[in-house]
Design a protein around this nucleic acid. Structure first.
Lengths: 288, 288
DNA sequence: GAGTGGTCTAGACCACGCT
DNA sequence: GCGTGGTCTAGACCACTCG
């Protein structure tokens, strides 16, 4: 089962019912093979959904093309002889790994490989610097959450500038950011009367850029999307996200703090001075 | 709420039944409040598990201490008047966010704040350099997976050194690594007859360190633990992990490639030259 | 053996996107 | 309106840990 020739050919016949029939039988074959493997379940009682995930994963590699629509969950569950909930457990894992994309009211499609998203060089620069990938959306003056206020070393009740930005890559929203800027970091910002919206956000960024950036540090962790982020990212609330926290240092203080949430299903965050690491799984044999 | 002294005190009263009784009533109160909030569900039909997660999250902040054991799932579900599956959906989210830790046969405990784990400075250094946090486990000569072979620009069938290492932080395994080193990167490695085990792994790392490191780049993405990684990380297969892929450049080639899987529930990956960002949620009011 | 979380089932209804 | 994925239920059994 060499790969290579799939893709272009398959893309044209995606919706072809006859082909779908063929694929369905392939899936049935796959699960049948799985069943015989399961007969010796006394030794390794692997969960069904884990088997399913493996089988589906291999089917995705060999039988499906990017963007193709899978059979619906009820059909798939019936085909594999499992409850829908079990099938869904497998699909959820595959979605978490970026192999599938599911949309309510639409269906489940094969996801393209994750896109590499550059998350700043080692040196770093102020947010809003020329050519950064972010698009200012709005800015308001509001108290920061307690943990952010602590990191900024401001009183939790003191309003700070909260700049909202979004990041689009390959025509798709990939990240939403909240940038917290204490008033002391932008002393000359008198244009608070700027019209709410991007202009106001840009004003804050412009003033912030006047400071000398002394350094920055960054942390990445797993989180789940808040309702507002989920909306901006076109995901459901609770969707897994990679939260990138960046602290900008100037004048010996934390001059600003950014909390950016990236879609974990579609993004691979890249760091480093040069090109990105190009590792993708694809249709291939697994190393034994 | 400075931390530091908590833990020891609380650890003693974790099992105190009287305290548990008190907490249970608090939980009941919480869900009761939640119910009245749900009455206006015509406007925003928020899922139950989302409500539950919020309520539990607040209860964790205000009523529970790190390490404390929660009531079991059946009790909790009954207490909140939901099916166990629904309760579990909320717990899963909280575990994903690093708030809870669940262990089969034991119970659900309140997790400590995520630990910051340094993932190398901008400059970078060879794996195995003095004082890196990794512990060599073993090394073998085996073909690399197809995608890794491609990145290393070696034939997929050609055996490469595969060094296994683990990383322990605060007495807990936090990461498992597979380091792929093509034979051409360690030409003088004749000690293949070294006894299998850490010694052999160290031999590969020592030879690798002879090269001039020209640079490296890094990517972070979400993954799910393979069976072997899960075992090393003391998690179930499929547990969410942060996969850090690092490419080491020397002699104009990719001299080695590391794929490190970090426990996503317990780790916050930190980058940058200086200290880590210190942002933690804790018992605190949420900004409105 | 008792108690825990993990898996699985066979249903039901709901929210959403399309046509 | 119809088909999709999302939520939820009320059970059951299994695998694991610990006393």
């Amino acid at each position: 089962m060499t790969k290579g020739e799939r893709g272009s050919i398959v893309a044209e016949i995606v919706q072809e019912p006859l082909i779908n029939k063929a694929r369905k039988s392939r899936l049935r074959t796959a699960i049948a093979e799985d069943r015989v493997g399961t007969t010796q379940l006394e030794s390794v009682p692997e969960p069904k959904y884990w088997h399913l995930k493996t089988v589906l994963s291999e089917a995705l590699d060999s039988e499906f093309a990017v963007g193709e629509i899978l059979p619906n969950e009820r059909d798939l569950a019936a085909r594999f002889g499992v409850a829908r909930a079990t099938l869904r457990q497998a699909l959820e894992q595959l979605e978490l790994e970026g192999r599938l994309q599911r949309r309510r009211g639409v269906g489940t499609t094969v996801a393209p490989p994750r896109m590499g998203v550059a998350v700043g060089s080692a040196q770093g620069s102020w947010p809003g610097a020329a050519g950064d990938a972010w698009q200012p959306a709005d800015s308001e003056l509001a108290p920061a959450p307690a943990d952010v206020a602590r990191a900024l070393d401001v009183d939790p009740a003191e309003p700070v500038h909260v700049v909202r930005r979004t990041r689009v890559s390959h025509g798709q929203p990939v990240a939403a950011e909240l940038l917290y800027v204490p008033a002391v970091s932008v002393p000359d910002l008198s244009a608070i009367d700027a019209p709410a919206g991007p202009a106001r956000a840009r004003a804050v960024l412009r003033e912030l850029g006047r400071l000398d950036l002394e350094g920055q540090d960054r942390a990445v962790e797993l989180g789940s999307a808040r309702a507002d982020d989920a909306k901006a990212l076109d995901r459901l609330p609770g969707a897994p996200v990679l939260v990138v926290t960046t602290r900008f240092l100037a004048d010996g203080r934390t001059a600003a703090l950014s909390m950016a949430t990236y879609r974990a299903d579609t993004c691979r965050l890249t760091f480093g001075d040069q090109g990105a690491v190009e590792i993708h799984h694809g249709p291939e044999q697994r190393a034994s």
